[in-house]
Each structure stands twice: as C-alpha cells, then as structure tokens.
C-alpha cells in the first residue's frame, strides 16, 4: 500500500498527487513512468513521473481524469492509500550533453515535460518551453515552466490565454528566424506530436517524442504497448515499456499509434458513465 501524502487540483480535470514510494523515488529519472493500481479490482495504468523527492521518498504524478480508473484515483484523498505502485519503468530521457533544447508540451503532457525542462535547466542548458492547451481553464504548471525556461511561450487553441494558436506556431516562427536547437523534445497528444515532428523535420534537428500507449504490465511481458518505427523503409516493432517511452520522432508511425490508442474507446466511454452518472453531459 502506498500513501498519498499530498493532493491538489491543477484544473477541473487534472490532479496532482504525491505518493510515498521510497524505492521508486530513489531511482526515478525524468521520462520514466510508474504503473499503478488504485484498488484490488482496478486496471493497471501507466503514468509518467512528474517529479520525485529522493529525500522524502515520494514520487509525484499528474493525471487527467479520463476513464473509470483515473476517476477512482481522483476519489482518493490525502492520507489514503493506493494498492499498487511500481517503477520506475522505461528508459530515462537522454539529456546528457544537451546545451540548447526546445521542450514542446501539450495538455497534460506538460506534466511529463516539466521534469525534463527542470533537469535540463539544472544542468545549465538553455531551455525554450512551448506549452499549449485547449483553453484557459485547462492551463497547468505555467509558473513552474517559467522558472526553468529561458524562453517561454504559452498557447491556447481558442486564444483565451497566452497567444492564440497551436504549439507549432512559435516553433515555425523560430525556425524562420534560423534559430536552432540541439534537440526538440515533445510530449502531448499524438496528433500534436505528429505535427511538431513535421514542423521540426525540415530543420534536421533531432526530435524526441514520448509515447504513452495502452499498457498492462509495463515490464515487457504483454506486448500491448507495441508501436512501429519506420527506419530506412523497414517497419520495426518496438515496445514502449522497455524500449521507450522516448523514441526518435522521425521514425514513429503516428497514424498507427493513433488508431491503436482508440482500441477501447467505446468500452472506456461506457465504463466512465458507469462510474459517474454526474459527468454525463459534461463530456
């Protein structure tokens, strides 16, 4: 059992939790994830590590309330316990030697992008952060990003906050001014990452994407998280849990990944409704 030591709401659908898990905290690095199970009857779900405190022995997660499981998780309060919490899983994001990096985060993906931005900042790298949201109410972690970024852009789709437009707009603008980076790291919805990769591609700057497919065990056993890389015309199957979650964005078959991510959409809608009838009509 793992204790929830802190919980706060970042926006109406995104929650922050700090969990006591000393063994995970000891090893956690940016880019890695954990697998948790809220209670005996819940699914195992992967969540990327948003922060960790090796001294306190805690690991922070930030999650969007999207389905039955995240809803159950959100119903837990400070001082209560989660049944299972295992990790850190996946390979850490490779940051060594990077001096000038652009981090592009979208929606709740910003929670994953933040520890990377922070670590790069601590390493003395110049960090340009672009974070994007649908609308003002969904903005999270703005101050935290500002603190560790040399250049900072915030975008909303509807223009209710920051600059109106998507995250590719400032990227394209910088590229047109011949600004360059050692690497662009992007984390967010698949469709956003696909477009970021397309925007970066003409510059030839390495572009890393963080994939978050459906997983069950997370330890390299089930193969549910498989995705396809296209390298020199050849299709290669990789497993996000042990080979990733970071991949070379130029190689990912995004269309396939997007299709696979919808495998249980109908099931999830049904479960979500079962869990909370109050939410009907909101989504």
């Amino acid at each position: 059992m793992y204790k929830i030591v802190k919980k706060s709401s970042l926006n109406p659908t995104v929650t922050y939790m700090e969990i006591e898990a000393p063994l995970v905290a000891r090893k956690a690095e940016p880019g890695q994830f954990i697998i948790l199970r809220v209670d005996e009857n819940c699914e195992r779900i992967p969540l990327t590590i948003a922060d960790y405190d090796r001294v306190k022995g805690t690991v922070s997660i930030i999650f969007q309330i999207v389905g039955a499981t995240t809803q159950k998780l959100n119903a837990k309060n400070e001082g209560e316990f989660i049944e299972d919490f295992a990790g850190p899983l996946g390979k850490p994001t490779e940051l060594e030697g990077l001096k000038k990096v652009c981090i592009v985060g979208g929606g709740v993906g910003c929670a994953i992008a933040l520890p990377i931005a922070k670590k790069l900042h601590e390493m003395g790298a110049e960090v340009t952060s672009i974070i994007g949201f649908r609308t003002k109410d969904l903005v999270i972690l703005e101050d935290e990003f500002r603190k560790c970024s040399t250049n900072f852009y915030i975008m909303t789709d509807d223009g209710s906050y920051g600059t109106q437009g998507n995250v590719c707009a400032p990227l394209n603008e910088m590229f047109s001014e011949n600004k360059t980076f050692d690497e662009v790291i992007t984390i967010g919805p698949l469709i956003m990452m696909k477009f970021v990769v397309m925007a970066v591609k003409p510059t030839g700057i390495p572009c890393t994407v963080s994939m978050n497919p459906i997983m069950i065990d997370g330890t390299g056993m089930c193969g549910g998280c498989r995705l396809t890389l296209i390298r020199d015309g050849e299709r290669i199957t990789k497993f996000a849990c042990v080979d990733g979650p970071d991949f070379n964005g130029y190689e990912i078959d995004f269309d396939e990944a997007m299709s696979r991510s919808l495998m249980y959409k109908e099931f999830e809608i049904k479960e979500h409704e079962k869990e909370c009838n109050l939410l009907k009509g909101v989504n």
């Binding site: 069950i216 056993m221 396809t228 696979r260």
Partner: peptide, 30 residues
C-alpha cells in the same frame, strides 16, 4: 497488419483475462 486493432499477443490476451480478470462482468480491464 499485426498492429491493427484486434490483434493481440497471447500474453496480452491472457493477462487481460486472467491477471486482470477481464472475464468477469465487473472487471474494469477491457
């Protein structure tokens, strides 16, 4: 076609059903 929706490894299919009890009506694992 091995990545189309509806293609499972036996490990995944069996894990969903056995370990995650998807065979039960009340299971939350699809």
């Amino acid at each position: 076609g091995e990545s189309y929706k509806g293609v499972y490894s036996a490990n995944e299919f069996l894990t969903r059903s056995n370990l995650m009890k998807a065979y039960r009506e009340d299971a939350t694992t699809p």
